[in-house]
Design a protein around this nucleic acid. Structure first.
Lengths: 227, 227
DNA sequence: CGGGATATTGATTGATTTCAATGTGAGTGG
DNA sequence: CCACTCACATTGAAATCAATCAATATCCCG
């Protein structure tokens, strides 16, 4: 199984694939068959908004951001994708978002036409495609709640909790993305994100070992700060 | 076709079904076969968050809001659904959102099990289900950009433009929802929404015939105020 | 050991929220 | 038919949270 392949060599980390649903697994099998692995350098474009959507994508290793920009440059990151996540699922022949590698990363590309004709013949694959799309939708809904109704501190806390994907306490979390990425994901400025991290540290809710390496001594305590 | 059925008797209004995609149409056919129409009173619950998701839903007449609330009562409306729109598509056995009728409305309910087993046998139906889910995802992404990066005025303008679903200028728009609903959709307070409507009126970007009936003299002019 | 990007911290401003009245309109009953 | 009422909407003044403007500080990377 690819699951094994993906996690091999990462045993020291928290599991990269959280609650791997049966549906995602089944899409993973399809990506193994149809997907061509492709390597991307940090900050390189995987696809651009408005480009014809020719492929579906699955992160194999590393992390990816998908985003939209307004004419004047304001950027909203829609989601961060990590190993095992499928992205680029929007229907229609054009991408609604752009996608970039955050650090070095490997992504599997599966031709839409191939995967869709596969889905036509195998209803399990069609169901997996639907489930993966619905999973993205669920994530977008959660993100919407955060952007629309939460305070800066609640946003940062929600983000940290989402990045700490195991329910265990006392986790060390490695953030692959910059403060600017976090700010553009949370709908805040980089200064507000930085200040909020500092403030959380000052109240012992988190420890900042370095700017991209944080420790959550008690997940419960942190959760109490989320709405 | 149901399209005819839905719009019959509404010829005086702007078309209720904007760009009805082939995919939605094909789901509409399924709803005609499997769906039981159900009538809802204003503000009545269609389903609640965390309830087992037993059905898929299509608005037949009227308007529906889907939303999430935080423990302390802050509410985020995820989307407004109008005639022809399919909602409740989230995968998983529980609803992620709640859904309520805004005014009096009729909704068709199709059992998930039935529609899914139909999709298993007919790949066209499976594709339509996927496309409808992806359409929700696209809407959520657009909404995210609005919540994360737009100013109050831009949000209200985006909202008005979305409610004016024909590209024509000089439209009169009937808003089915209250200012509170709009506020909770845009991530603003009711006062800010009200002030922004007033300000748009003072600059002649819109006319307020009554609080729920507005006229857009020039769509182009209004679009210039959107980001 | 630089040097440039990234991050933190401080001071101030400003948009939106909050608090507080006032206005408006649809429905009801006298 | 009018007055009353209640929910909904508008408007105003003050407070607040996050953004902006402005220095440093720190971390990589060569």
């Amino acid at each position: 199984m690819l699951k094994t392949t993906i996690t091999s060599g990462h045993e020291a980390h928290a599991p990269l694939l959280q609650s791997q649903s049966a549906a995602t697994e089944s899409l993973t099998v399809v990506f193994e068959m149809l997907g061509a692995p492709m390597f991307f350098q940090p900050n390189s474009e995987i696809y651009g908004e408005e480009e014809p959507a020719e492929y579906f994508y699955q992160v194999f290793e590393g992390a990816v951001r998908t985003y939209k920009v307004l004419e004047d440059g304001r950027r909203q990151i829609g989601a961060f994708h990590r190993a095992g996540d499928v992205f680029g699922l929007e229907a229609g022949d054009k991408h609604a978002f752009s996608a970039e590698a955050i650090g070095k990363c490997t992504v599997r590309l599966a031709k839409r036409s191939g995967l869709l004709s596969f889905a036509e013949r195998d209803s399990k694959v069609a169901a997996a495609l639907w489930a993966a799309t619905a999973k993205s939708l669920r994530g977008a809904h959660e993100h919407m709640l955060l952007l629309g109704r939460k305070t800066a501190e609640e946003r940062v806390v929600s983000f940290i909790l989402a990045m700490a994907n195991s329910p265990a306490s006392d986790q060390i979390i490695e953030l692959p993305m910059s403060r600017q990425d976090i700010a553009d994901y949370l709908g805040l400025t980089i200064e507000t994100v930085s200040r909020t991290f500092s403030h959380l540290e000052s109240t012992a809710a988190i420890e900042l070992h370095s700017s991209r390496r944080i420790r959550v001594p008690s997940r419960r305590d942190l959760q109490r700060l989320d709405a």
